Simulated assay, not measured.
Amino acid sequence: MKNFMNEFKKFALRGNMLDMAIGVIIGGAFTGIVTSLTDNFINPILNFVTGGKIYTLQDIAGFASAFLSSLVNFFIMAFVLFCIMKAVNKLMSIGKKEDEVIPDKKICPFCKSEIHIEASRCPHCTSQLED
């Protein structure tokens, strides 16, 4: 059972999988904005232009309010997802160690210039180097 849970954790917390899930959720939230834009701005403008309906000031205020509400919902959803991703990234980095950098240069003890780590003679002062 423990092995199964470790495999599932490795699968679920892969970067591509989380990115795809965030994309689907943001896409769903953005659908609300597009729907609200269509229902609250485009359709009323078309109805008004074609003479299908006359809107009162209260109707227009209601349309604007509904659209602003969908915008606020989208930004709240985006902020929550941002916080979740930040927390997941923090949790993923806790167990990892920083990659140790293997030095590829050393300092010549005679002229203090930087030389390759495997050099047996300094190319600057031509001194013989000890290993």
Rank of each mutant, 00 (worst) to 15 (best):
L91H: 07
Q58T: 13
I45T: 15
D99S: 11
T56E: 05
A61Y: 12
L129Y: 12
F4A: 13
P103A: 07
F79Y: 12
G62H: 01
N43F: 10
I102E: 09
N89K: 11
F75C: 10
R14N: 15
L71P: 02
F30P: 01
L71H: 02
G52Q: 13
M77E: 06
N47V: 01
R121Y: 14
I84K: 03
A78D: 07
K112Y: 12
I42P: 00
S69D: 11
L46T: 12
I76Q: 05
I117K: 12
A87T: 07
G23N: 13
G95M: 04
K53F: 07
M20T: 13
I117L: 14
F4L: 13
T50E: 12
F110L: 05
E98S: 04
S113C: 04
F30M: 14
T38A: 10
K97M: 07
A29P: 00
F67S: 03
F110Q: 09
F63V: 08
N89T: 08
N16L: 09
D104A: 04
E114M: 04
I102V: 15
F74V: 04
S113G: 00
M85N: 10
M92E: 09
L71W: 07
N43I: 15
F48G: 06
A12Y: 14
V80S: 02
A87D: 02
S70P: 02
M85Q: 11
K53A: 11
Y55P: 00
F63Y: 14
N73E: 06
D104S: 05
K9I: 11
G62C: 04
T126Q: 15
L13V: 03
A12I: 12
H116E: 15
D131N: 10
I25E: 05
F11M: 14
K112L: 10
G62P: 04
S65K: 15
P109R: 06
P44V: 09
S93P: 03
K105W: 01
C122I: 06
I45K: 03
L18F: 10
A78H: 05
D131G: 08
A12V: 14
L13W: 07
P44K: 09
M1N: 11
K106L: 07
F41W: 08
T56L: 06
P123N: 12
T56N: 07
L13K: 02
I102S: 05
F41L: 14
D131I: 09
E98G: 00
G27R: 06
M85C: 03
M17T: 15
D104Y: 03
A64H: 05
G32Y: 07
R121F: 13
S127P: 00
K2G: 14
C111E: 04
I107R: 05
A66E: 12
A119T: 02
I76C: 03
G62Y: 05
S65G: 15
K53L: 08
V72S: 13
I102C: 00
M85D: 12
I60T: 07
E114I: 09
I42Y: 11
N47Q: 15
C83G: 05
G52P: 01
F8I: 15
L91G: 04
K96V: 10
C83D: 00
M77D: 03
M5K: 12
S93Q: 08
L18H: 01
P109W: 14
I76N: 02
K53V: 01
I25W: 02
A29K: 02
